[in-house]
Nucleic acid binder design. Structure first.
Lengths: 192, 192
DNA sequence: CACTATACGGAACACGTATTCCGTTTGTGT
DNA sequence: ACACAAACGGAATACGTGTTCCGTATAGTG
């Protein structure tokens, strides 16, 4: 691969990283090319299509997530504290990267599983964090990693919708976190 | 307005109602026209553009929601039972109408507020349900109707994403419901 | 320095969907 | 029955984006 080609590939990735983080996957290919200082032809020479580019960037974020989870898993504190920390990390990353938030949000549950599965350790680590908190008795007894994913998607969705409402999503996070806890009361019959 | 025009307007609304409920706002105008048994020209004679048609249908659903809330508000049971009932109603309606779920989900918080506000009583009733549950001490003390909207949007989003996963969204609903309750524990420090 | 494989830019193209236009048809009041 | 305003159908058009094509430029090699 020629040196200028390699340089352009990096420029494109950097430009796309910024744009996706800022405005999500809706950015146009021509805009990515312009910001990278290349023509669209060059962009398409490096990445076969838009999906390829998006997947590359999503991969980066998924690996970042996996690293966070791993760090939490082998960190200190109660199982609940570590699970909660991991969740907060994931939300913070989504808050920093609208592209990730939108991807989790828009691709939904089943579609994005393949991508997530291709990141070694991402789901497994999440599952272990959940299991430990369940065993500890601090999380809902029936909690699964799929519930977790669903909650994270929910926050991601709120982030990617609420452009002009910074910080509103953390309300949802608090509500969900307390919903993930083991509950003292059982069912709607227990109203005072 | 001529009789055939009125009839066509109804056919179009009926067709669009079905299609939107089934597949969301992504349906093509030509498809709506075909199902209604008219040409696209006729469709555009009755509704200036796609938005107008969608708003009409959204209006119907919002009024249905408002009626549900009203019924719950003046219904029997504890304030919590009524709030929970209203939430479950709203989710059930979204489950029946993908168009609504998608609209709540896709238009996000700020964008759909104008539409919701144009439905008299929708937000006010929701707020009163929340207030009563808070006063009763059964809901989180800091709960607002905006939190409620956010949670309902979250479920709507899950519904409109999970095409092939019927019934997965109710897990999210359960988690959120228990998160909306007044909690016995305070903050992450209380882990056992 | 010359030569060539590789890469480059960006205009042109492909495509899907909303929307318009206009020649034809039809309801309705006289 | 007649006239004509109103309505109809659906081919044609507008438009925004992703993607391809090809004439030109250039890095690397001997």
């Amino acid at each position: 691969m020629r040196a200028d080609a390699r340089r352009n590939r990096e420029s494109i990735l950097a430009a796309a990283r910024d744009l996706f983080a800022e405005r999500g996957a809706g950015v146009e290919m021509s805009e990515v090319a312009e910001r990278a200082g290349v023509g669209v032809g060059t962009l398409y020479r490096r990445f076969p299509d838009k999906d390829a580019l998006v997947h590359e960037l999503l991969g980066e974020r998924f690996r970042e997530l996996a690293a966070c989870y791993q760090r939490r898993l082998s960190g200190e504190g109660s199982a609940w504290e570590r699970l909660e920390g991991a969740i907060r990390d994931a939300c913070a990353i989504q808050d920093r990267d609208r592209g990730l938030a939108e991807a989790l949000s828009a691709t939904g549950l089943e579609q994005h599983e393949p991508v997530a599965r291709s990141t070694p350790g991402l789901l497994e680590t999440m599952q272990r964090l959940v299991d430990e908190a369940v065993d500890e008795g601090s999380a809902r007894a029936d909690l699964t990693w799929e519930d977790l994913v669903m909650c994270l998607c929910g926050v991601g969705h709120t982030i990617s919708c609420a452009e002009h409402l910074p910080g509103r999503w953390d309300r949802l996070l608090e509500i969900q976190l307390s919903g993930l806890r083991a509950t003292a009361w059982e069912g709607p019959a227990a109203a005072p």
